[in-house]
Design a protein around this nucleic acid. Sequence first.
DNA 1: ATGGGTACCTGTCTGC
DNA 2: TGCAGACAGGTACCCA
Length: 279
Amino acid sequence: MPELPEVEVTRLSLVERLRGAQIAAVRIGKPLRWPLGCAPESLVGHRVHELTRRGKYLWFALDAPGALNSGAGGLLMHLGMSGSLNFSAQHAPPGPWDHFDLATDRGLLRLTDPRRFGAVVWSSAVDEGAAGKLLARLGVEPFETGFTGALLHERLRGRKVAIKTALLAGDIVVGVGNIYASEALFLAGIDPRTRSSRLGAARCERLATAITGALARAVQAGGSTLRDFRDTHGASGAFQLEAGVYGREGLPCKHCGTLVRRIVQAQRSTYFCPQCQRR
DNA sequence: ATGGGTACCTGTCTGC
DNA sequence: TGCAGACAGGTACCCA
């Protein structure tokens, strides 16, 4: 489910209530992608100092009991393909897909994840241990000033993979998942099959702008795809209406009327307009 | 280093 | 109706 916009919307909706919340109990359901890495009871008494995001990962920075900002490690969370995070009623029994509960004095935070590609991992610091290892290979944040067309140009040079695949890899720029990779390339007028190294400075500039724009608009829209998932209305929803090409195979391009095509790249669907997007 | 493929797991939809 | 198969918002890891 979650690409950067959905993760950021999740973070924004939780951060105020969670900041300062004290952990009262931790419940683990079925195993997620990786083990927690600490005894769940050892987290009891800690407070959530801050909730931040890196790429599609959430970082719950923890304070030791009684101390303020003592840096008592934290929890790194990934929502995988199907994860969602919400406050539940304090004593609501866990459903079959609820695999991680953080009971706090501010409410019960619950991770629901049917496919269990998600993970919650304890780490002594963001840049150490399990978290450090997972975050080490990540590229720049699309909303930070370091993300420019020039950087894209520099990092794509010498890469032979298709641009769509390069964007998804996450080691150049983070947060662009399967939907927004297609959308950004559509906005930039670039054929997703284009060899990365063939993109010149001008198109890299356009692509950087398109990526930032698409992600920012999606955050503003409230991560509509996330809402779809929670309401179990399937794939149709506000984002589908906004999407230029994603999920629109066989429908007319909104710019030129040419039928949108679907292809498979690196075992993932890619959607594009063969007329508006050029190699 | 790069790139390709596989693996993880479960739900939903489509077509026969 | 039943069932097989395709497909789904991610990413670490293994191997050429």
